[in-house]
Computed example of a mutant assay.
Amino acid sequence: MRTRYNAAITALGGYVPENVLTNHDLEKMVDTNNEWIVARTGIKERHIASDKNTATSDLAVKAVERLLKDANLSPEAIECVVVATSTPDYIMVSTASVVCEKAGLVNAWGVDSNAACSGFLYALTLGASLIESGRYKNVIVIGADKNSAIINYEDRNTCILFGDGAGAVLLEQTTAEEGLIDNVFRTDGSGKEQLIVRGGGSMHPSTTETVSNKLNYISQNGRVVFKAAIEGMTQTCTEVFERNDLNAAQVDWLIPHQANLRIIQAVGEKLNISADHVKVNIDRYGNTTAATIPLCLWDYKNDFKAGDKMILTAFGAGFSWGASYLVWSKLRGQ
């Protein structure tokens, strides 16, 4: 009889650039103020890769190096890397390929996944599937974005929201009832115009016209995205509850995408999960897109204990959204 494997998170790594961009810094750049930003978003500061030679892959590599150190693993032990990102180093050449080269993951193959802010959850289930197949034992899943590369710092509606960062998790085989248990994902392409970077792809290749019209920057209809995020995240979390006979009292932690504190609070309230069971770090990092959930796991890993039931949920461009049910595992070295 074939052994049934689950994919357990057994190590984590995270990285944000040293340069901090505060709300007070933004006051000098655009027509905004600290009080308004905090009240509307919950964000106080975000980390920005100020060195123009720093790419998304560099952020990811830093997170991977910390993960390998904590896991006491050599780079040669990693068999596959899945990178979730909306800001790849290049249009052609996957960021995963660059990460494997820079981090010395000589025995790994790599692939990118682009689902914007939902990217890490989508990549996590892809990585977990490789583990569950029994063919792979050590898979790293990364969420990384250098959002500052696609932000117009003259647009006060978007520049206040986003930061740069990377988070990584190691997936390993387990036969216990832990690890990634279930997912509910949705995609609706009709929402694409509400949160999009129009320039730079095959629809609108980069030209002097796309650059002058600022089409290579993020454009967002905040009101539409705000409402859709609350509805989508709540809906998929509720479906995960129903599919797994869970209720709010049984959930130890809600780990939501860090897009807006008011969205996070609304989803927690609709799910009847108290604020002290919801992990939040948006005040320090802003929205790091695919990196928010793994950065949250890395930030708060010492608060989690084996057997903790977690719901991870996100909403992003596409529209893309969903929720995952995770049972926490003992980390390497604990």
Rank of each mutant, 00 (worst) to 15 (best):
D303K: 12
W298R: 07
W298C: 04
D308G: 10
G318C: 04
F315E: 06
A314N: 10
D303L: 10
F319M: 10
K301R: 15
A306E: 14
A314S: 15
G316W: 04
Y325S: 07
V327D: 02
C296A: 14
L297C: 01
D303M: 09
G318P: 09
D308A: 07
V327C: 02
D308N: 15
K330I: 00
L312F: 06
L326E: 07
K305N: 13
F315N: 03
A306R: 13
M310Q: 15
N302V: 05
F319D: 02
C296R: 01
W328K: 09
L312N: 05
I311V: 13
A323Q: 05
I311Y: 11
N302I: 03
A306H: 14
K309E: 14
A317I: 03
F319V: 00
V327G: 04
D308H: 14
D299I: 00
S329E: 04
Y325G: 08
D308T: 04
D308K: 06
K309T: 15
W321E: 09
D299H: 13
F315H: 03
D299R: 11
A314G: 12
I311L: 14
V327P: 05
V327I: 14
V327T: 13
K301I: 01
K301C: 06
W328N: 11
G307F: 10
N302L: 09
A314V: 05
A323E: 09
W328R: 07
N302Q: 15
D299L: 01
A317M: 04
L331P: 07
K330V: 00
D303R: 11
L331R: 06
S320P: 04
A306P: 10
K301L: 03
K309I: 10
G307N: 13
Y300M: 06
W328H: 13
F304M: 14
L331S: 07
F315A: 06
D299C: 04
D299P: 00
F319G: 05
K309D: 12
G316F: 09
K305F: 06
K301T: 01
A314T: 07
A317S: 15
F304Y: 15
D308F: 08
A317F: 05
Y300A: 12
W298P: 01
Y325L: 15
L312D: 07
K301D: 08
N302P: 00
F304L: 15
A306N: 13
C296K: 01
I311Q: 09
V327Q: 12
C296E: 09
D308E: 12
A323H: 02
D303P: 00
A317R: 09
M310E: 13
G316P: 06
F304C: 12
G318K: 08
F304I: 08
G322Y: 08
K305H: 14
I311M: 08
Y325I: 00
M310P: 08
L331A: 02
N302T: 12
K301S: 09
L331N: 08
G318Y: 09
C296D: 12
A306D: 12
G322T: 02
L331C: 02
F315T: 02
L297P: 06
K301W: 08
S329V: 00
L326W: 12
G322I: 00
W298M: 00
I311T: 11
A306I: 02
Y325N: 11
S324H: 02
G318T: 09
D308V: 07
A323K: 05
K305W: 01
N302R: 13
